[in-house]
Design a protein around this nucleic acid. Structure first.
Lengths: 204, 204
DNA sequence: ATTAAAAATTGACCTATGTTAAGAAGATGC
DNA sequence: GCATCTTCTTAACATAGGTCAATTTTTAAT
């Protein structure tokens, strides 16, 4: 974690968080006054670890700026299985859900600002504002669908197909993620991704 | 769907459903009287389709007996990506969550009895009993974790490793699922699964 | 700007899994 | 119980992607 933020910056980031949250949970000004107490603005430098394997994830965060990589270390190898870009949520969900040690690392791919809700605060919300339970449910539901899509893609598409689809649907991956991490996300070695990229170029 | 059930059988199945639900949502006798109105006992013969691709999933079900296979049809090929065994939930979740057409088929692998809650009833529950929102949330959270585990296994383990782990952790798959479906679940062709099984035998 | 370090590419060769085809073993129906 | 159909296995060959090693390109540090 990095330098202190000015009061003004802090408020700006909080405001941004409210905007981004709106689709899930539109809040009146009064509600927001309560809600914002639960937020913490955190900022990281490129390469910093936002969460380490074995730590329990205490925060559900919104990426105000920057992007993060989620990876697991298996047999001495890093496997990148998710990224969070600007305006998306960022969290080691299974750790957060269960409040048990995370199997994953989360690392800042760029300098990052996160607006983070603490687990305990969210539980309070669930308790006092039952409708926020719906917010929690909807969020997980969205992730569920995302994971399912990806699982099916891993089962049915070749690495080349996965690369092309990603390029077409989510070009941000190509713009913001180093190829070695992207390769891992596509479930191939960097050398193979290179070959795939070359093949695609040659075919044009 | 099959023969009519006797009143007694119907009540027995409902009772079983309550028992199975208990871990997620313990209910008093009075609560259960309300709750059980929302259940429907459905029964299927081996091979029946419980849900077809393109249909919207209206039910979240508990498998009272039997087991089901969830698969997607891609490029003319069936890909089995999930099974529901006795006492587990059964649902095309992403379809149910979004109330949009399912990408998946669900088929009875054996004769099946399901205790099913209708989507609309569940929404009513969420509305009138906010604590049941937690039930919905917890259920999806459990599935999320399951999908995540599987995704990581698909990324990091060889087919042989996946087979061995499955055999050791969940032998029920081997007992109840034909090898051709199991192969698909492990993301290999039946011929490859055969080779893997042979190799394991030879190594003993 | 210069140098060092990291990332990306390329080529030669290897391995796990896919493909095709055939036969053996098991299940199902009459 | 016999015939038929489906599932499972085996073998020969093909291929996508892995491995290892060298080279080029990009990025970062002084």
């Amino acid at each position: 974690m990095d330098r202190r933020l000015s009061e003004v910056e802090y408020e700006q980031h909080l405001h941004a968080a409210r905007e981004l949250l709106y689709d899930y949970l539109p809040l009146t000004d009064e509600q927001w006054e309560v809600f914002k107490q639960g937020f913490k603005i955190r900022n990281y430098l490129k390469g910093d670890f936002i969460l380490n394997e074995g730590e329990t994830e205490r925060f559900l965060s919104i990426v105000i700026s920057g992007c993060t990589r989620h990876y697991v270390m298996v047999k001495g190898e890093e496997k990148s299985f998710d990224f969070s870009f600007q305006h998306e949520f960022n969290c080691s969900y299974s750790s957060f859900i269960q409040q048990e040690p995370s199997m994953f690392f989360i690392q800042a791919l760029e300098d990052c600002v996160l607006a983070s809700i603490h687990y305990d605060f969210l539980q309070q919300l669930y308790l006092y504002y039952p409708e926020s339970n719906k917010f929690g449910r909807t969020a997980v539901e969205q992730y569920y669908i995302w994971r399912e899509q990806r699982e099916i893609s891993l089962m049915t598409d070749s690495a080349q197909e996965r690369y092309i689809k990603l390029m077409e649907k989510y070009p941000i991956y190509l713009e913001q993620v180093p190829l070695k991490f992207l390769a891992s996300y596509l479930n191939v070695k960097p050398e193979s991704l290179s070959r795939i990229r070359k093949k695609i170029l040659d075919e044009r």
